[in-house]
C-alpha cells in the first residue's frame, strides 16, 4: 500500500485515495461532431501500461481534490504528483 503525496495535504496513506484511471483524456468540446468511432475512442479506449502511466487520483477521504500522478505500474514507484491543469512532467 503506497504513500501518496497529495498536492494539497501532503503524504497520506493510499487508503484515503481512489484512482480515477488514465489521465489527460480530454472530454471532447463538440461531441456531436464526432463519429461513433471517434466518440468510442474517448469513451472506452484506455491504455493499460506495464510501466510508467499517467493517472487521475482523488483524495476521496481527505480534501476530495482530484490531481494527477505518474506511477510505474510494474513496481508502484510514484514519479510525480501534480495538480489538475498543470503540465505533465517529462518522465
Amino acid at each position: 500500500m503506497f504513500v501518496i503525496n497529495c498536492p494539497y495535504c501532503g503524504e497520506r496513506d493510499q487508503s484515503e485515495f481512489s484512482c480515477g484511471g488514465e489521465a489527460h483524456i480530454l472530454r471532447p468540446k463538440q461531441p456531436t461532431e464526432l463519429s461513433d468511432d471517434e466518440w468510442a475512442e474517448y469513451l472506452f479506449m484506455r491504455k493499460n501500461i506495464k510501466g510508467v502511466q499517467f493517472e487521475r487520483w482523488n483524495h476521496a477521504h481527505g480534501c476530495r481534490k482530484w490531481f494527477n500522478m505518474v506511477r510505474d505500474t510494474s513496481n508502484d514507484k510514484i514519479h510525480a504528483v501534480y495538480k489538475m491543469g498543470e503540465k505533465p512532467p517529462v518522465i
Partner: peptide, 13 residues
C-alpha cells in the same frame, strides 16, 4: 457528489 465534483474539478474548472 463524487461524479459532479470530478466534472467540476477536471473538465469544467
Amino acid at each position: 457528489l463524487s461524479k459532479l465534483e470530478d466534472y467540476l474539478q477536471t473538465e469544467w474548472p
